[in-house]
Amino acid sequence: METAQRKKGDELMPNLQTVNSTPATFRDKWKHSEFYKYFKYKYLTLLILPAILYFAVFAYGPVYGLQIAFKDYNFFDGIWGSEWVGLAHFERLWQMQSFKEVFVNTVVISLYKFIFGFPAPIIFALLLNELRYVLFKRWVQTVSYFPHFVSWVILAGIFTQFLSPSIGPINILIKSLGFEPIYFLADTQWFRTVLVTTDIWKDLGWGTIIYLAALSGINPELYEVAKVDGASRFQRIRYVTLPGLYPVITIMMVLTIGKLINDDFDQVFNLYNPAVYSVGDVLSTYTYRMGLVNMEYSFATAVGLFKNLISLVMVLGANAIAKRLNDYGLW
């Protein structure tokens, strides 16, 4: 009986092998492709279409116009009709003393923001995480988030009044102590300090969101074990909390380094004035003046393209270094 069943099974095996060896149809390949997931979950795909259209129109669409950085753009001739000049505008960049000054200002201000601004949300998140009163913790979070949603146009007006040498509360306090008032927004020695301080204040609370989310993912048992072993609160932060934040800190650092050459146009444009151009004029404001005010569209595009290429190199370099140091990175 068993022998007969085994023979019958052996006779069926070639047929099964034939079926299994049959090449997959187009329908089978389609169902196992990545694009099928978008079709299968078409309603979820529809939800991300606005974001895709936004980046397609406002991020990738303008790439077409980058070619005017290599042309002597004329409005009446159009992009295609304008004369090709190659790298002439890029050569002009390094021949202009004003561009070198602006480039140094951008790097210095960005480094200040990185040195003092990058650790600020990490420290603030650690402090919030140690609070035991939930209602007070939520209140502090809400208050700290609020400045992020206020535009620099409004904040610039507030800071202008707040730092005013005549009616500003800080200068009133300074004068009451017997010192001369300080023109914070018109003094080259103080303007960069104002930029860095106001930038940290505005985005401090918003920057803590990612770190608080990472803190919530740390296993509470690790804290209990550390506490049983006699670790103090500071030691628990050092040996449990911070190692749990390393992946997030690394990724945020890579992204921040990639933005070092960038600057906050809204902030600088609304706070600076000709008196502090020597220390406050940055690449974005310089591009604005050269492109829209002086109507040198090709030169302004060359400045913007140069800045973006440096940002790309810095992101790639920072990610490679991060991967070598602790195996964490963007990709």
Score class of each variant (00 low, 15 high):
Gln235His: 02
Pro247Gly: 08
Asp199Ser: 15
Thr197His: 05
Tyr277Phe: 15
Ala231Val: 08
Met252Phe: 07
Asn171His: 07
Val196Phe: 08
Thr197Phe: 15
Gly205Cys: 12
Asn262His: 14
Leu271Gly: 10
Glu224Val: 03
Val254Pro: 03
Ala186His: 10
Ile210Gly: 09
Phe179Leu: 09
Ser176Phe: 01
Lys259Gly: 15
Leu173Tyr: 10
Pro181Gln: 13
Thr287His: 01
Leu283Asn: 07
Phe184His: 11
Val248Lys: 01
Gly178Pro: 10
Ile154Ser: 04
Arg233Met: 04
Gly217Lys: 14
Ala275Glu: 13
Val194Ser: 03
Lys175Ser: 14
Pro169Gly: 04
Pro181Cys: 09
Trp190Val: 02
Asp266Val: 02
Leu177Cys: 03
Ala231Leu: 13
Ser278Tyr: 05
Tyr223Ile: 05
Lys175Pro: 01
Tyr286Asn: 08
Gln267Gly: 01
Asp264Ala: 03
Gln235Thr: 03
Gly258Pro: 05
Gly258Glu: 06
Tyr223Glu: 01
Asp203Lys: 07
Leu260Phe: 06
Asp203Gln: 12
Arg236Val: 00
Gly217Val: 14
Thr193Gly: 15
Thr250Gln: 04
Tyr223Met: 07
Ser278Asp: 10
Leu155Thr: 12
Phe162Glu: 00
Leu260Asn: 11
Lys259His: 07
Leu292Cys: 08
Arg238Pro: 00
Thr256Ala: 13
Val293His: 05
Val254Gln: 08
Val196Gly: 06
Phe265Glu: 03
Gly205Tyr: 07
Leu242Gln: 02
Ile174Thr: 12
Asp264Leu: 05
Glu224Lys: 13
Ile182Gln: 00
Thr285Glu: 05
Phe234Asp: 01
Phe159Gly: 00
Asn171Glu: 13
Thr285Arg: 02
Phe159Val: 10
Glu180Tyr: 09
Lys202Met: 08
Glu180Val: 09
Asn273Glu: 06
Glu221Leu: 12
Ser278Trp: 00
Gly168Phe: 03
Thr287Trp: 01
Arg238Phe: 11
Tyr183Leu: 12
Thr160Met: 13
Ile167Tyr: 10
Leu195Val: 15
Tyr239Asn: 08
Tyr183Cys: 00
Leu173Met: 12
Trp206Gln: 06
Asn262Ser: 13
Ile251Gly: 00
Ile172Gly: 00
Lys259Tyr: 09
Asp229Thr: 09
Tyr183Asp: 14
Pro247His: 02
Ile167Val: 14
Leu245Ala: 02
Pro165Ser: 05
Pro181Glu: 10
Thr198Tyr: 08
Thr287Arg: 03
Ile249Tyr: 00
Pro243Ile: 11
Asn219Thr: 12
Met252Glu: 10
Ala213Glu: 04
Thr250Asp: 07
Gly217Ala: 15
Val268Ala: 02
Thr188Leu: 02
Thr208Cys: 15
Pro247Cys: 07
Pro169Gln: 11
Tyr286His: 09
